[in-house]
Design a protein around this nucleic acid. Sequence first.
DNA 1: GGGATAAACTTGACTCTGCAAGCAATTCTA
DNA 2: TAGAATTGCTTGCAGAGTCAAGTTTATCCC
Lengths: 159, 159
Amino acid sequence: MQHLTTQATNAKQSWARLVRAYAAIARELDARLSSEHDLTINEYEVLLLLARAEGSRLRRIDLATQLILSPSGITRMLDRLGDAGLVEKAECASDRRVTYAVLTEDGMSRLKAAGRSHDAVIEQLVGARLAKPELKTLTEILERLPSVEDDAECSIGDD
Amino acid sequence: MQHLTTQATNAKQSWARLVRAYAAIARELDARLSSEHDLTINEYEVLLLLARAEGSRLRRIDLATQLILSPSGITRMLDRLGDAGLVEKAECASDRRVTYAVLTEDGMSRLKAAGRSHDAVIEQLVGARLAKPELKTLTEILERLPSVEDDAECSIGDD
DNA sequence: GGGATAAACTTGACTCTGCAAGCAATTCTA
DNA sequence: TAGAATTGCTTGCAGAGTCAAGTTTATCCC
């Protein structure tokens, strides 16, 4: 039962640290964003994605694939953001199945304010703890790991 | 509004990659664990923590701090694991407020089986994609980031 | 000792999320 | 062009988690 002991393989150790770092940072981010701006991390990410998109709009399906969220999760989140007035629906002329999510003025200003908190937390928890080259190394290594985008194609589980 | 564009600081890029890697791996892990062993990641972690603990038992409060879970979350999870027969309650003679969670025989064998799936996924998604020295570097860098354990002491948020 | 305080845990109400099923619009195909 | 398959989205339900409030047991301090 050596796989139950702490002398794990390197991959397991890396994963354990990754989980812990992720959890700590995500919690802090979530705490700051929700207490100061009444936004969850996911809501912040949606707003950010919309702000970067052409015309501040995106199809729901595109949001779902870029976020770590199922289509139904997107629908519900967009409902909440819509109730809060941060996002609006828009129809697509060429394909009436699609509904765009469009960032409102309010959404944009909320995003800008929240972005400052977000960036400050990341800077404090990540930027300040690692030197520039380390950040670069970290990013490069993480890029070699699976990513949510290629989740669909990744043929894990059929071995 | 340059903080809304994609040319982010290194820290933000690293964080973005970390989130994506975490999400992809955690999803796969969760999918495997739940389809093959009917366990969530957190349930697996609890079982693992218990197996490593002295006497295969741990106070609920200790589980809560080592896991990414609130005390009430622990209670509910332990209820589920108890219903499934993987974990039992035990009283503490010296302090009757505490309830131990104790791994059962069934819990141990379930853990062993699940551990193989877990390790295989990590090996496939992390171990196989990075060379040994990279794994080492990754772990070292991640260790410099905040971790759930020091979450309590970390004085973020009062700046 | 005895009352205040704290610690360990549980419970109820609620939120967020995913899955499966369903609807409507579009595209494919014969 | 009609039927079938596909795509985009929504909805009902159930699971897992949180927070706030409550209970019981320990500890502190006069």
